[in-house]
């Protein structure tokens, strides 16, 4: 019963996603809603505003710097989760595996 329910749910989701793909605007079309005045403003005024020729860096660290702070927080949260799950063993305490110190 549960498998049938899962199958029906996933099948319905597949139908919804596939039917919405056919409604997407064609890629690179000039009439797409992603080509609005914001991208034109970035291309025209970005170098004057930020003095950075690399427009992508100008966007991610100047116009969208708060979003980049969120990305850094995602990294921080991810590593906090990994360290809390796996754990850090401090190797300065156990001296007995010092002989596999393969330096040089």
């Amino acid at each position: 019963m549960r498998k049938i329910f899962t199958f029906i749910m996933l099948g319905g989701l597949l139908v919804v996603l596939l039917s919405s793909i056919s409604e997407l605007p064609p890629m690179g079309n000039g009439d797409n809603p992603s080509f609005n005045e914001i991208s034109e403003y970035y291309i025209d005024e970005g170098v004057e505003d930020t003095h950075a020729p690399n427009l992508i860096t100008a966007i991610i660290t100047d116009y969208r710097a708060f979003d980049t702070l969120g990305e850094a927080t995602v990294l921080f949260t991810g590593i906090a989760a990994v360290v809390s799950l796996i754990g850090i063993t401090h190797h300065s305490k156990n001296k007995e595996d010092e002989e596999d110190d393969l330096h040089g």
Binding site: V47, T50, H51, A52, P53, A58, T61, D62, A65, A72
Partner: peptide, 21 residues
Amino acid sequence: PMGEIGRVLSAGLIPVVTFAL
């Protein structure tokens, strides 16, 4: 300090933030 376009030491806070990140 914004500096001259195209120099390493320009663009205000962008290189500082990039280095820290």
